[in-house]
């Protein structure tokens, strides 16, 4: 695997984490738990945005994956 695809895999996992947290936040009926899930989700979203830039940059550097 090239670095680009590795980072992409990690990016996908981060998206998975974000979505799972959203599901948990909606499923729970405990207000405090819901808050913690939402806060963590926000943290993960920040990481996701950073990684997204990195994925785009790596895609420019490895153009064969854009064909």
């Amino acid at each position: 695997m090239t670095v680009g695809s590795q980072v992409k895999t990690c990016y996908a996992s981060i998206k998975n984490i974000e979505a799972t947290l959203a599901i948990l936040a909606n499923q729970t009926n405990e207000a405090k738990s819901r808050n913690v899930y939402r806060e963590t989700e926000a943290m993960i979203t920040e990481i996701k945005n950073d990684l997204e830039k990195q994925v785009l940059m790596l895609a420019r550097e490895e153009p064969q994956y854009n064909q």
Binding site: V3, V7, L21, V36, Y37, M43, I44, E46, I47, Q54
Partner: peptide, 29 residues
């Protein structure tokens, strides 16, 4: 791992920062 593998200082910093953020999130939840 990405932070260790890259030679670009700026990218290294980005990976490190995000890894710390994720560690915080893990501790939190």
């Amino acid at each position: 791992l990405f932070a260790l593998a890259t030679n670009n200082e700026e990218t290294k910093h980005l990976y490190q920062r995000n890894s710390e953020k994720l560690q915080n999130a893990i501790d939190h939840i």
